[in-house]
């Protein structure tokens, strides 16, 4: 039983994130958490684009907001998105980690600590090494770590760093990732 699917990406990851979200079932019984690096001071256009692209319940959580199922949470720009043991989000405005805020490592590590084996972490295209350590924590705690096959990524550095660091990470193409996520917690076959 998966409780959380956490997706991290940077440069070049947006099309894959969109494809994953579009393929989500209308109702799903887990939580999706998306952490994408964004430029400072860019108004969160992305939230709007993503919400339009797929009739989803998608939101940027506020501090101490309880985590619910069936919702896509987007890390707000300029804050680290953390998760507390009581399954609430907490935001953090301290210095960037891996030159990034939000940092994928920060969120993935929290997911690993709180949701242990009931979590899936997916790391996509990007031009820095954020996420590799967090993905490792998820795997270490019994969760599943998936990395976009670097050959299919616009920017290979991020997925490659994660693969180099984590021998047990699964390498998948964007299509496979979409299939994987759309069938989490269901025995159904993915739609053709």
């Amino acid at each position: 039983m998966t409780e959380v699917v956490a997706i991290g990406g940077s440069a070049g990851s947006l099309p894959v994130v969109m494809a994953i979200l579009k393929a989500l079932p209308v109702a799903f019984d887990y939580t999706v958490i998306v952490v994408i690096h964004r430029l400072k001071n860019v108004v969160s256009e992305m939230e709007r684009i993503l919400a339009e692209a797929s009739n989803l319940n998608i939101r940027e959580p506020e501090d101490k907001e309880p985590i619910k199922k069936g919702i896509v949470y987007l890390a707000p720009q300029n804050y680290h998105l953390q998760i507390e043991a009581d399954r609430t989000f907490s935001l953090d405005y301290s210095e960037p980690v891996n030159y990034s805020r939000p940092s994928i490592d920060v969120t993935f590590e929290c997911v690993a600590t709180v949701f242990k084996g009931r979590s899936v972490a997916i790391l996509l295209s990007g031009a820095n090494a954020d996420g590799a350590a967090g993905l490792g924590k998820v795997i270490e705690n019994g969760g599943t770590g998936i990395v976009q096959e670097p050959n299919t990524a616009d920017y290979k550095l991020m997925p490659q760093a994660a693969i180099d660091k984590n021998k047990r990470a699964l390498r998948q193409s964007p299509d496979d990732i979409v299939d994987y996520v759309s069938t989490v917690n269901s025995s159904q076959k993915p739609r053709e």
């Binding site: 953390q82 507390e84 043991a85 907490s90 920060v106 929290c110």
Partner: peptide, 8 residues
């Protein structure tokens, strides 16, 4: 917040 203080 435990997550923050631990990281600090």
């Amino acid at each position: 917040s435990r997550a923050s203080i631990k990281r600090r």
